[in-house]
Design a protein around this nucleic acid. Structure first.
Lengths: 356, 356
DNA sequence: CCCTTTAAGGATAGCGTTATCCGACTGCAA
DNA sequence: TTGCAGTCGGATAACGCTATCCTTAAAGGG
């Protein structure tokens, strides 16, 4: 029957990976014993006689055995896995958070399943629904949180279910959701950035922000405005422009500002990505950033520090976000919904970090 | 015992996610029938009476059922999953390839497991060994390939085993490994870049490259040198500097060049990351890139095009890499080890793409 | 009206693990 | 010698799912 399949050389035949049963057979022990030998044994501390243990290890090695995590999950009801939800891997911030989570995950021997929502709330819900079936140890939500009550409630319902099913939930960023969260002081570090800019003599500002429902952007705007207000600087309503929180949004925002650009000292973008888009559009209009007016950002994409030497921004410890999130996700005693890990941004003004 | 755990509201109790058995019970059918109803049925085309099918779907919906992929994998012996090996997610190239693979994977209903090797060959082998147990449909290798025979053979052995066990193997980039691969014409597009630079009057070049064993960098260097040779331009051996293929490598390379910098028209970095590091170091030395000499790159990080307007580089279709790799990994008829998908780079000289 | 074909849903088995239970053996004190 | 606690390895079961087989019933032809 399978004669034809295993016909010629062994190259074409699809033989199966070795299973624990193969290892056990080779070592001359039972399957559960082989399992105990490989896993260090749940029984007290030991796992059978050392001699036998060695025989199993040798057999596993000889066969090139690798445990099948799917079977482990089926049996144990829980995967050694953390799911991570981001909007888009290509986004700098997401990529850095992913990196942080993965580094921390490796140390703990869990692997990370990255899923992208592409900023689609519906897709986000569907993904979370699918995650329910995957029995992850935890889910880390690192997508943008909003003030849209309807949307957040739908999200919360999904997360609540996951939590009840034993998958820990962690939120990255500020939100009203009642789950453990990692936050950064967007408001305060933005205020400090504005303060420093005001001190350096800047007076006329425009702000490039995400749509008002995005909490991160909103907090940064508020902090920035407050920092300016402390220097008696007001920003006209029309100088606060809301566009997509991306390179293209920054580009479009410049056009929305129109002629008001000529009367500005600073265009403060609430993300580095927006700042880059703004710089690109300004250059097309013949306006150079540090020369004619100053464009500032937020996030601190390291590459920009190299090519825009006196660029001002706020360094957000995104890599640390990832590690903190995983700590909340996996460490016992931090499962309280009110658990918070607060991190701090570092304003960088004209290339120099501001030490607090 | 767990009285205290399930004490108060149901909030604290960990109930289990619904299984297919729960759905079947609610719908009043057997478990296999529920499975058939949900999966469209393998039997010919149908899956039971439409009335019953609807009942099952309703029940699943009511319970918020999501299939458990681990159980599916255990049963079927194969996961609906593709593993993707990169060196580092934070690296721009890797992030873009991941994005391409994920987008393509979503269309095909498979999910992607990203693993990072952190440029450690040992870790790479260990990871591949673990992947054997995970029964992925395919593995895409997007780490740097080298000319180190020992290292490549160890890799090939691992990949061969995976292949024999039914996990398709796809390589991203040039290599001597006998597996389906996605390639880009590094040599030719590098030659075209050099040609264009020579035509614009540049004569004195230095080259910043990765260590010679890295195939991608090597091909780009060769192409570049050939392009220059066609204009009777020779690059002294000492002007070809080998450092890490990263921002820091570019930075260090400038110091290695030392005083020879003063006599150069172009410093051609074989990656955008190296170019950025070089630009940073040059600025510290008081040398500005487009003004005093020209630094060029390779890869086309979009952000650089915005902030360095007349930057020269080669656009590598990394997103397309991902899609092509997934096509080789999943489409039947492309499993031949000699299958190749060849993609083309687009030189961008002083901000303008060169149309071939 | 009986036999045959087809369809449809249920029963069963098995994927690779590991937790739980059980039996056998060891060693030691009574 | 008997009794008993303590070890250690094997047998068994179960996780959730789907492929395979089997039973039952309905439909259709002679």
């Amino acid at each position: 029957m399978h004669e034809s399949a295993r016909g010629r050389k062994s190259k074409l035949s699809v033989n199966k990976p070795p299973t624990l049963a193969d290892v056990a057979r080779l070592a001359g022990v039972s399957v559960p014993t082989a399992s105990r030998a490989l896993n260090g044994g749940v029984r007290g501390k030991d796992s059978g006689s050392p001699e036998l243990r060695l025989r199993v290890l040798d057999a596993a090695d000889a066969l090139g055995y690798a445990v099948n995590p799917a079977a482990q999950t089926t049996k144990g009801g829980r995967a050694r896995t953390v799911a991570l939800l981001v909007s888009d891997i290509e986004d700098f911030g997401s990529a850095t958070i992913i990196s942080g989570v993965m580094h921390a995950a490796e140390k703990r021997g869990v692997s990370v399943a990255v899923r992208t929502t592409l900023d689609d709330p519906l897709r986000e819900i569907k993904l979370l629904s699918a995650l329910r079936g995957e029995r992850h140890r935890a889910v880390v939500i690192a997508t943008a949180r909003t003030t849209d009550a309807h949307r957040e409630q739908a999200l919360e319902a999904q997360l609540r279910t996951l939590d009840e099913h034993g998958t820990r939930v962690v939120i990255v960023g500020d939100s009203d959701l009642d789950f453990p969260a990692v936050t950064v002081d967007n408001h305060e570090s933005s205020r400090l950035l504005a303060d420093a800019l005001a001190r350096s003599g800047k007076r006329r500002f425009a702000i490039l922000a995400a749509p008002p429902i995005e909490i991160t952007s909103r907090d940064r705007v508020h902090g920035f405005l407050q920092g300016l207000a402390e220097h008696d600087i007001a920003v006209p309503e029309s100088n606060v422009v809301h566009q997509a929180f991306s390179r293209d949004g920054g580009y479009a925002a410049i056009d929305e500002l129109g002629d008001r650009i000529r009367e500005l000292d600073v265009i403060a973008a609430m993300s580095d990505a927006m700042a880059v888009g703004a710089i690109a559009r300004l250059r097309e209009l013949g306006i150079e950033s540090p020369r004619d007016l100053e464009v500032t950002g937020f996030d601190h994409v390291p590459m920009l520090g190299d090519v825009l030497p006196r660029f001002s921004t706020v360094e957000v410890p995104l890599e640390a976000f990832g590690e903190a999130a995983l700590s909340l996700a996996l460490d016992e005693g931090l499962s309280d919904p009110s658990a918070r890990i607060a991190l701090y941004g570092t304003p960088i003004v004209h290339g120099e970090p501001i030490v607090r």
